[in-house]
Measured scan of single mutants.
Amino acid sequence: DNLVIALHSYEPSHDGDLGFEKGEQLRILEQSGEWWKAQSLTTGQEGFIPFNFVAKA
């Protein structure tokens, strides 16, 4: 599955970004460039995340 774990917390800075906490698990929905579309397994919310803040779970 496309699961990743957050290496750092991220505060959203643009509409459509997904904020998350360090250690949170996310499911990657789309990989494109440096911003990936993801869904939080904690909150169920979707949005874009910086790819370098996460690692394969």
Rank of each mutant, 00 (worst) to 15 (best):
D1R: 09
D1M: 11
D1S: 10
D1F: 12
D1W: 12
N2V: 12
L3G: 02
L3Y: 11
L3D: 04
V4G: 05
I5G: 01
I5S: 03
I5R: 06
A6E: 02
A6N: 01
L7S: 04
L7K: 05
H8G: 06
H8I: 11
H8F: 14
H8Y: 14
H8Q: 14
S9A: 11
S9M: 06
Y10N: 02
Y10F: 12
Y10H: 06
E11L: 12
E11P: 07
E11I: 14
E11M: 13
P12M: 04
P12C: 05
P12D: 02
P12H: 04
P12T: 06
S13C: 15
S13H: 15
S13A: 13
S13G: 09
S13I: 15
H14Y: 10
D15E: 13
D15L: 12
D15V: 13
D15A: 13
D15N: 11
D15M: 11
G16D: 09
G16F: 12
G16W: 15
D17H: 15
D17G: 13
D17K: 09
D17W: 14
G19V: 05
G19L: 05
G19H: 08
F20T: 01
E21Q: 14
E21L: 13
E24P: 01
E24F: 02
Q25K: 14
Q25T: 15
L26K: 00
L26R: 00
R27W: 10
R27C: 08
I28H: 00
I28D: 01
I28P: 01
I28Q: 00
E30S: 11
E30A: 09
E30Y: 11
E30N: 08
E30T: 10
Q31T: 11
Q31C: 15
S32H: 14
S32L: 12
S32A: 11
S32W: 12
G33Y: 03
G33M: 03
G33E: 04
G33Q: 04
E34G: 09
E34Y: 15
E34A: 13
W35H: 07
W35L: 08
W36Y: 10
W36R: 04
W36H: 02
W36F: 08
K37T: 07
K37V: 11
K37S: 05
A38C: 06
A38K: 00
Q39D: 01
Q39H: 06
S40M: 03
L41V: 11
L41I: 12
L41Q: 05
L41A: 05
T42W: 11
T42D: 08
T42Q: 10
T43M: 02
T43H: 02
G44R: 05
G44N: 07
G44H: 07
G44L: 09
Q45F: 09
Q45A: 12
E46C: 14
E46M: 14
E46K: 12
G47V: 03
G47F: 05
G47K: 01
F48Y: 14
F48W: 15
F48C: 15
F48D: 06
F48S: 06
I49H: 01
I49R: 00
I49V: 08
I49S: 00
I49K: 00
P50T: 10
P50V: 05
P50Q: 06
F51I: 12
F51N: 14
F51G: 14
F51Y: 14
N52G: 09
N52T: 10
F53R: 06
F53D: 07
F53P: 07
V54H: 02
V54M: 04
A55V: 14
A55N: 06
K56C: 12
A57G: 09
